[in-house]
Design a binder for these strands. Sequence first.
DNA 1: CCAAAAGTGTTCCACCTACACCCATGG
DNA 2: CCATGGGTGTAGGTGGAACACTTTTGG
Lengths: 230, 230
Amino acid sequence: MSTQQHIRIAVDAVVFGYESQKGLSILLIKRGIEPFRDYWALPGGLVLEEESLEQAVLRELQEETGITLDYLEQLYTFGEPKRDPRNRVISVSYFGLVRPNHFDTKASTDAVEAEWFSIRNTPNLAFDHQKILDTAKERLRGKLSYQPIGFDLLSEEFPFSDLEHLYTSILEKDIDRRNFRKKIMSFGILEETSKFRQEGSGRPAKLFRFNTKKYKALEKAGFHFEIKFV
Amino acid sequence: MSTQQHIRIAVDAVVFGYESQKGLSILLIKRGIEPFRDYWALPGGLVLEEESLEQAVLRELQEETGITLDYLEQLYTFGEPKRDPRNRVISVSYFGLVRPNHFDTKASTDAVEAEWFSIRNTPNLAFDHQKILDTAKERLRGKLSYQPIGFDLLSEEFPFSDLEHLYTSILEKDIDRRNFRKKIMSFGILEETSKFRQEGSGRPAKLFRFNTKKYKALEKAGFHFEIKFV
DNA sequence: CCAAAAGTGTTCCACCTACACCCATGG
DNA sequence: CCATGGGTGTAGGTGGAACACTTTTGG
């Protein structure tokens, strides 16, 4: 306790969004200050004295991007001494998901630009943010298989094909549509609505809704969500 | 970047050990200073300016307990503003495993007491360390099912029954000995040795060894370790 | 009537589950 | 010879994998 630390603590957020046409996207901001001025970076910043880490993430996201999250969890803490070229900054990174209807990045108070980038085409990132992003991508792929987290990337009501596309595009594996649907349906965590949606031509698709209550109940009863691919 | 932070950053380690007779244990130290003087706590301490977080954990463990780890990974970062009653301290916690032959806690330089406690009988812990411990227990149970991590709690060479007892006692579920053995064996990640061990009476047990290379190779080929219970 | 996307059932096989007795040693 | 823990096989059931055609709409 005797030596004074000069380490600072920040939070950074990897926020994913998904649309069936554009695929997976990630939310980035353009830095207005050195170091890495004009580089794209993960939204984030220093933690204030009296706020929790989660509060810090939500505040920074609000300030820098105006976004509202649908899911948030801690990802990993990156603390290498040289990850920030100036001072030592430890970053507690978070993993967030946003539904398409919450995509809009309102004008931010900080006058920083916030923009969605396709995951297939991200710019050079500041600091070690590429490493953080890679960790988050891994986490996303991992979680898709054993947690019903994909629903937090879709609209409240979605056609079944959106779920298929989400899985195939993120996991980069083919699935058997019949088996996939059978499996998901067997869990009993999707509610049919009486609505339909149609994009362009083709048969209109029935819309479904994820039943959070039912899932919570099943989970408590020992049920484990799991989707495997070949 | 303008406001000065007074947040400090520490690391804490939840180190598990296992013996077939005594079951799961955890390594604790007795605090010599306030706050929580004379309370038992997780080994750990403030991160130094120039060291990585992992180095900090290993250094603190060495100083306070003299222990050598067989496995280490980051667990979770606890950062509530009031978790330390004096200053704000953020704790990056780690999860460690030690084989029985590395149990000895050599005399520490800090003159702190280090002791193994049965997981079934841990004392009141300082700070929010009970919460950290609970998180680690959850992680351990989770990892046992989908990673061959139990082997890092056993001796290099172990009888099959040790593995059985490890799983049953940590997961608190009964297993079918035949099916369990069949499953593990089918993975082909255990090597038979030609040695036997005998505790008291009963038929001597053949000793096995975990084949790390083979597991790494299998993993690379897409193999996923998994043990399920009813 | 053609193109596009949604929707749907059955068979086969692999793997999991349930289950009980014999073996090798010490006392 | 008894107690203790180690070691083993089989049959039945369940769930996953493979597989192709019909339906509804727009153009």
